[in-house]
Nucleic acid binder design. Structure first.
Length: 563
RNA sequence: GCGCCUGUAGCUCAGAUGGAUAGAGCAGUGGGUUUCUAACCCACCGGCCGCAGGUUCGAGUCCUGCCAGGCGCGCCA
């Protein structure tokens, strides 16, 4: 469904467009800005059209605004979606629009009617988009950057779904590279050590304690026959596979604890087994983007904007990381996804150009693939940065973070910030000071409203019946109109957040809505006010509660009735 | 050297396709509801939007250069 705010803006824009033509001027509809003024006293919507037209027309913007105002007055926007009550010219030449009360009230009615679906919209209907995120190497526990990516990827997918798109969540398991072998060798050393033999973890291997635990686990179960066999090579290979499966299983567990569900866990090894890697190479070759030099197979990525060409198959015949990764993305398209979005860590940004190049070389639009870099996270404890290093074995894991901070606060905290900002996560603050964390502020507003509705019930009122018969024109206070406006804006905001890949707009809006509610609550009684007003206010409360719940659901955060 | 990200209040960050007096939380100071949850509300304090140019009627936002911090630049993954 098209959100009320979108329908309203469209109607106003088209009225402005008509007025411009009627006046004998021209401005393409796309550059007619219709926006919500920051200051509510400037009206419900405003346009800068007169300011933009000033130069071309060669007149004072205020004069132009006057003409537009007159023309719009002659043929106003559709009254059902934009019931204009007044227009005024302000400042250097803004034209401000004000709507009749029925407009805001309509928004509240939509909220209550649509309930849990309010916010869903059709802005991105027909699009199909696959989000791939976390995709950590299956060699160790998930770290905090993974947690950040998890929160962002999950919510982005939810936002796109809410905006009408088909959106998927996918996790890529790099279970075929050299790092898997190293993991096996590292674990092998740990197991041997436990058995009292001399063994060293390879220098390039994984030194974390988790492998000691895994070694204990390996020995505590039924030890497979291949472990005692004479085939050393087989032993390492089997153990590598066993270890990878273990790590992936643990990663799956953590992700589930985080409340995140992937549609697909995709194994790199499946690409090698199915021949997709070879096929991809042949595909590129047949398109003329491959050459051989110094014994290696190269991809002419510099033809597609990369700074230099890249090796796909090394001199000794092994594919580099790039080739299976290209095969993987090729496979995503083959499975019917139109747009691919990857969330990568900051250390991979140098890799973007070659991947885009490869996908373009395979005939896909440049716009059909994009990478969001999820910037690093500094964990602070006692004001000091806690270092994370997979290799060194001292690491802050996603699991630890969830235990310490909790799922709701972790998700909210990560989603509050822009994705591309480096961020400091103060553990002491997040853990100790409840009131410091804005997630409680929003949850508290939700709980408070629940409590109000509960109180109404205890007073013998039936909120549902009250809502149905409520006369919303009784909502006349500034706080009430402000809340209603935030409800009206919500669906458009969901669409914007999806379209711009900026999930942090949702928490920002929820905080604003919560603040507006707390303010309202402080100044006005709900239960116990004049019956007609009481009914209307109960409806408003229910609407605000609904939007808070819907917004928190997009973030994967609980909306408690009691705190 | 090249590339990416960041630079806004003491701290952590918003600032919506460039718009009207640059916002919030925390910290600090001082207040508030005998009534539906004080995890709340209100006021005050606090700004050369890193620096310098440019585009524009208008720039925190766009362009150029510089400064500072972070990260990345393998026939590694």
């Amino acid at each position: 469904m098209t959100p009320l705010i979108d329908r309203t803006v469209a109607a106003v824009r088209s009225a402005i467009s008509g007025a411009i033509s009627a006046a004998g001027w021209s401005l393409d509809e796309g550059s007619i800005v219709v926006e919500t003024p920051r200051d509510p006293s400037h009206g419900d919507l405003a346009t800068t059209a007169a300011l933009v037209l000033a130069k071309e027309v060669g007149k004072n913007p205020r004069e132009i605004a006057e003409t537009l105002q007159a023309r719009i007055g002659e043929s106003p926007p559709a009254a059902d979606v934009a019931p204009l009550s007044s227009m005024e010219i302000a400042g250097p030449g803004f034209l401000n629009f004000r709507f009749a009360g029925s407009w805001l009230e309509g928004g509240l009615v939509e909220t209550l009617e649509q309930g849990g679906e309010y916010g869903q919209n059709d802005r991105l209907a027909g699009r199909s988009i696959l989000f791939e995120f976390i995709s950590a190497n299956p060699t160790g526990p998930l770290n905090v950057v993974s947690a950040r990516a998890a929160a962002i990827g999950d919510t982005l997918a939810a936002l796109w779904q809410a905006a009408g798109a088909r959106a998927g969540r996918e996790y890529y398991i790099n279970d075929a590279g050299r790092q898997v072998r190293l993991l096996g060798e590292s674990l092998e050393a740990r197991v041997l050590q436990l058995q009292g033999e001399e063994a060293v973890v390879p220098e390039q291997g994984y030194h974390g304690d988790y492998l000691v635990e895994m070694a204990e686990q390996f020995l505590s179960g039924e030890v497979p026959a291949w472990w005692g066999g004479s085939d050393r090579e087989k032993r390492t290979e089997e153990l590598s596979r066993w270890a990878t499966d273990q790590v992936v299983a643990v990663q799956k567990e953590i992700v589930e604890i985080f409340g995140l569900h992937f549609d697909t866990w995709f194994r790199e090894s499946s690409l090698h087994e199915s021949g997709a890697v070879e096929e991809t190479l042949e595909d590129l070759r047949s398109r003329g983007h491959i050459y051989e030099s110094e014994g290696a197979v190269w991809f002419r990525s510099s033809d597609f904007g990369d700074e230099k060409d890249r090796v796909l198959v090394t001199g000794d015949g092994r594919p580099t990381y790039l080739l299976p990764d290209v095969a993987y993305h090729r496979d995503k398209y083959a499975r019917g996804w139109e747009t691919l979005i990857d969330l990568w860590g900051p250390d991979h940004h140098g890799y973007i150009a070659r991947m885009s190049a490869a996908l373009e070389a395979l005939g896909h639009d440049r716009e059909a693939f994009d990478v969001m870099i999820v910037q690093q996270v500094n964990l602070l404890r006692g004001g000091e940065i806690v270092k994370m290093s997979k290799r060194a074995g001292r690491l802050i894991e996603m699991e630890e973070l969830l235990e310490e901070v909790g799922r709701d606060a972790t998700r909210f905290f990560f989603l509050m910030r822009g994705t591309s900002t480096h961020l400091d996560f103060d553990l002491d603050l997040a853990v100790s000071a409840n009131e410091e964390n804005p997630v409680y502020y929003v949850q508290y507003a939700h709980a408070r409203i629940s409590s109000v509705l509960e109180h109404a019930r205890s007073e013998g009122l039936d909120p549902d019946a009250e809502l149905a018969g409520a006369d919303l024109t009784r909502l006349i206070e500034a706080e009430e109109r402000g809340l209603m406006r935030l409800l009206v804006d919500y669906p458009g905001l969901v669409a914007d957040a999806a379209e711009t890949f900026e999930p942090h707009r949702i928490p920002a809006h929820l905080r604003q809505l919560s603040a507006a509610f707390h303010h309202f609550y402080h100044n006005h009684r709900v239960v116990g006010s004049e019956p007609a007003v009481q009914a209307a206010r109960l409806a408003l409360c229910a609407g605000v509660r609904q939007v808070l719940a819907n917004g928190l659901a997009l973030l994967g955060v609980e909306a408690p009735d009691r705190m």
